[in-house]
Design a protein around this nucleic acid. Sequence first.
DNA 1: ATATCTGTATCAAATATAGTTACAAATAGT
DNA 2: ACTATTTGTAACTATATTTGATACAGATAT
Lengths: 141, 141
Amino acid sequence: MAANSQFSMAVHILTMLAKGGDENMKSEYIAGSVNTNPVVIRRVLGQLGQAGIVSSQTGAFGGTRLAKQPSEISLCEIYKAVSCGEVFALHSKAPNKDCPIGANIEAALCSLQKEIDHAVGDKLGEYTLACFIDKVCTAKA
Amino acid sequence: MAANSQFSMAVHILTMLAKGGDENMKSEYIAGSVNTNPVVIRRVLGQLGQAGIVSSQTGAFGGTRLAKQPSEISLCEIYKAVSCGEVFALHSKAPNKDCPIGANIEAALCSLQKEIDHAVGDKLGEYTLACFIDKVCTAKA
DNA sequence: ATATCTGTATCAAATATAGTTACAAATAGT
DNA sequence: ACTATTTGTAACTATATTTGATACAGATAT
């Protein structure tokens, strides 16, 4: 379980919240659909809350709801809210600076990394949560 | 050290091999520039070999060299050779099929996943190893 | 034959995710 | 004020992956 499925979970959670409208939804209820523990849901909700995508209330009859309309939430902002945003990692240990290639390759890789990550953001930005929910629903029909 | 830096390593290794021309290069020499263990290098070289990007020889005076010209090696094929090729993972446990959203969201996420992964492949495909090496060298100047 | 180098198996250490339990803090309703 | 409920978060375990290291069989040039 090392591959990062938090984006998938986040989209699932937000799809549920969108269906729930303006009412507070409990983490336990969402957990039932995602098939996991409520705490796992609350952890993801915490990140989505910090990003201003959802809004939560503690206490009795508390829960979480969307902070914006589904048509105003892009998949890009969901991705950025819950992931490190890097498609590939740079060297875990710095290369040998005494080698001309080792000394200069990190900067070139970093520039490439930014470009790839930007391309992912752009592609995800083409979709909103509302778009995505349409896809889920047409599949159902 | 859980983030996957194999693509960065692979590009580094191939940059070294390109500079080495037609001669066999030892894993130990490459490891000196990447600043890691020769076995780590040989593992990545094994994947690049299976993809037909490099060619290795065992025995005395053995080593590895490029199997194609740097201008004929795209960064996309390097990426595919050494990574799982998925920007984000699907649910680790299958969602609840009794929930209409849980039952249909996996297909929609899978379709989105393919589209994003494809976008990354396309973007990486815009560059060849030769292009990348130019970037490393101009940075040096 | 001998020395050298790859290929690969195996093991350990570090790190990340997922899942679980437990509990403090907040809040609605009585 | 009291109670029941729900979030937020800390702490812990299990699992998986990556990286790194040691060891050795097999191949090959001299």
